[in-house]
């Protein structure tokens, strides 16, 4: 555990120092560490695929739960991987799968949100309290300000929407970002000092 903590400290200091010191050795080491990160991320994707296959293969073998969906997932995963590796991911064959399956499925999932939002808004978006009324009014103004029809109803809707986005909403987002940044620095310092050890795994 202590060895892992020491490695964390050394690597983190190298990555930090490269921003403050112009020492070629530190810059080179920082560059290498960043490249390692990319390689590890690539391996993590492979590991995720392996884990996915393991879980769903087991489900198919035991015919547990919705195993037919697991079987379909495995077939698609194998076929798509084969097509990508054999023909290349810019090939016409890969494009057939992308345009015919991945694209419409992704678009459908996203498009269904519109219907759920319409139904949920009708049922739940009620001016029951002052807060809810403000939320309701702001929502309607932003929606009308974002669609050309809003300008036809009242020419000032886009300006009003713009003010809402650039003054109250931006103030809230800035507060969120500053809070998150300070939180990030605090966690970073805790990791550096060895107080935070969650990234090393194990523990309570």
């Amino acid at each position: 555990m202590r060895f892992a903590q020491a490695i964390t400290l050394v690597f983190a200091l190298i990555l930090l120092m490269q921003f403050f010191l112009e020492v070629p050795a530190i810059e080179t080491a920082g560059g290498h560490l960043t490249s390692w990160n990319i390689v590890i991320a690539a391996f993590a994707m492979g590991l995720a695929a392996f884990n996915l296959i393991r879980i769903h293969l087991k489900r198919v073998q035991l015919k547990r739960g919705n195993w037919i969906s697991s079987a379909i997932l495995l077939i698609v995963l194998v076929v798509q991987t084969f097509v990508g590796l054999y023909f290349g991911d810019n090939s016409a064959q890969y494009k057939v799968f992308f345009d015919g399956i991945i694209s419409p499925l992704g678009a459908t999932m996203y498009a269904m949100l519109a219907f759920w939002i319409a139904s949920a808004a009708f049922r739940a978006f009620k001016a029951r309290t002052l807060d809810a009324t403000i939320l309701l009014c702001v929502g309607i103004i932003v929606m009308l300000g974002n669609a050309p029809i809003g300008e036809i109803i009242w020419s000032q809707f886009p300006a009003l929407r713009s003010w809402l986005m650039t003054v109250p909403a931006m103030a809230a987002v800035r507060a969120l970002y500053i809070g998150a940044a300070i939180g990030g620095i605090a966690v970073g310092v805790r990791v550096l000092l060895g107080i935070e050890r969650g990234h090393l795994g194990g523990g309570e």
Binding site: A121, L136, I140, N146
Partner: peptide
Amino acid sequence: NLDSISSGHLVIILFILFGNIAYF
């Protein structure tokens, strides 16, 4: 496609208004 955004937004707003009228 932006015309669809206009009509879609308008319909959602009308549903919200009808929902509130019915509720109150």
